[in-house]
Simulated assay, not measured.
Amino acid sequence: MSFIKDIKHVLLLYVIGDTLTTLYALQTGNFYEGNPILSSIFGMYGATSLISLKIGFMFLLYHVYKNADRYYWNITRHTVACIGFLATASNMISVISYW
């Protein structure tokens, strides 16, 4: 399988979904980043630094894809996709419930 085909759910949920919903929620000014590490990074470099962090994470994910056993790669990619789903859903619920 190709890397892009393997990570389509990661791209949709973790990269695109979480990034867009986080940036939107922070842009409204009614929400804050709950992760203290990300919050301090956003404080220093702005919320758009999240895009750079996601790109860097994709390089790390590619390294795992190339070097890990297929079993561990599948666990990794499905876990990241689930985290992306939970983060996106949490962001969306927060924004919708605020309205």
Results as ranks from 00 to 15, higher is better:
41 I>D: 07
92 M>H: 01
24 Y>F: 13
44 M>S: 09
31 F>C: 08
52 S>N: 15
57 F>Q: 02
6 D>S: 11
38 L>F: 15
40 S>E: 11
47 A>L: 00
82 C>L: 13
29 G>H: 11
90 S>H: 04
44 M>F: 04
79 T>R: 03
87 A>N: 01
48 T>A: 11
77 R>D: 01
70 R>N: 14
33 E>I: 15
87 A>T: 05
39 S>T: 07
94 S>D: 07
19 T>A: 07
43 G>K: 11
19 T>R: 03
38 L>E: 14
75 I>W: 10
15 V>K: 00
81 A>T: 03
4 I>H: 10
70 R>A: 15
55 I>C: 14
54 K>I: 02
16 I>T: 04
62 Y>I: 04
16 I>K: 01
99 W>Y: 12
14 Y>Q: 01
43 G>M: 05
51 I>W: 14
35 N>V: 06
24 Y>K: 13
42 F>Y: 08
8 K>T: 09
61 L>Q: 05
69 D>S: 12
68 A>W: 00
88 T>Y: 01
61 L>T: 05
37 I>P: 08
3 F>G: 02
28 T>C: 05
69 D>T: 04
86 L>I: 14
98 Y>V: 04
75 I>Q: 04
33 E>T: 14
70 R>L: 14
15 V>L: 06
48 T>F: 09
59 F>D: 09
44 M>E: 11
80 V>F: 02
99 W>R: 05
49 S>M: 10
81 A>H: 02
12 L>N: 09
42 F>M: 10
29 G>A: 11
69 D>K: 12
62 Y>V: 06
36 P>T: 13
35 N>M: 05
63 H>K: 10
75 I>C: 07
25 A>V: 09
4 I>M: 11
61 L>V: 07
21 T>C: 09
20 L>S: 08
88 T>D: 03
12 L>K: 13
53 L>P: 11
57 F>G: 01
56 G>A: 15
39 S>P: 00
95 V>I: 13
64 V>I: 13
12 L>T: 04
63 H>M: 11
92 M>D: 00
77 R>T: 04
